[in-house]
Design a protein around this nucleic acid. Structure first.
Lengths: 150, 150
DNA sequence: TGCTTGCTTCGAGTGCACTCCAAGGTTCTA
DNA sequence: TAGAACCTTGGAGTGCACTCGAAGCAAGCA
């Protein structure tokens, strides 16, 4: 059931290149760190707080990440960029673990996130306009130092 | 010299509505807090770390903010939205205090910020595409629960 | 004049998201 | 079989950006 819901979600993702093909996808933590840009510390911490759905282990207990884990981490990294709190992402991870009956709540969560992202883009475009205005001012002030906007 | 450089910068700003006209613009800290949405604590902290160029005082030592201070705070709030570290904003505030010979460095700082903002907008638009893709998946999965993307 | 509300300072406390440490077990190359 | 380089854990530490507290002074109103 757990793997079903994760797989179902993976099927919603755009295809993505993996370092190794399916079947040989057993990465150590440092390989994942190198691939994702996260540190091994952060990866372990993600698992501890429930942000990594479930990570396989070798027979001696070392983590072995799969391509699916890489997809999930890529998605988490995107969400991080939006400023979404880690606690909210943990909530989404819980919904994944709980199976298909949480589809509605997952969709709502993603839609709320989409609204936040759109708001943030608008704010940034606003800021860009202010920056352009000030940069123009400095550019012309330095071309003609006699106080061109007085 | 201090007020000159601040004024010069204000002249680079887009016009903005103020609660009171020039000449009567002496706001208490709680008025500024209400207007900007920052707390009084935060405003005092901004001043302590050098992020407020210089705030007037009443004859008994209480802060009296001006329209120019409001403009500066509005700009700072925009920069905050971009994720710019406070230390960088303090650096910009220092350049303002140092006068017109810092125009070039100010422009460079703003241009670097603009590049960051553009990058961030692109990242967010990328994230938006991923969100749309997943939301579409949940929407159709809930309309036709027989695993529509298999 | 008294009362309430607001302002002052500086240092300490908070919450988030990591980031690191120490002590010990595992895996790989020579 | 040695040694280097990796991995494990729980808990403590870090850096940022606030956020709050306490003691005392200031301002405005009945």
């Amino acid at each position: 059931m757990e793997s079903t819901s994760v797989k179902t979600d993976a099927c919603a993702s755009a295809p993505r290149a993996h370092p190794r093909p399916e079947g040989q996808d057993r990465y150590t933590i440092s390989e994942v760190a190198a691939f994702t840009g996260l540190t091994a510390h952060t990866l372990r911490w993600y698992e501890r707080i429930g942000l990594m759905p479930h990570v396989d282990r070798s027979h001696t207990g070392q983590r072995r990440f799969t391509n699916r884990d890489l997809d999930w981490l890529a998605f988490v990294s995107k969400l991080r960029l939006t400023g979404m709190p880690v606690a909210d992402m943990v909530r989404y991870a819980e919904l994944l673990r709980e199976g298909e009956h949480t589809f509605e709540e997952r969709q709502e969560l993603l839609e709320a996130t989409r609204r936040d992202v759109k708001t943030r883009i608008a704010e940034l475009q606003d800021t860009l306009a202010v920056l352009d205005h000030k940069i123009d001012f400095y550019a012309s002030a330095r071309r003609a130092p006699e106080r061109p906007c007085a």
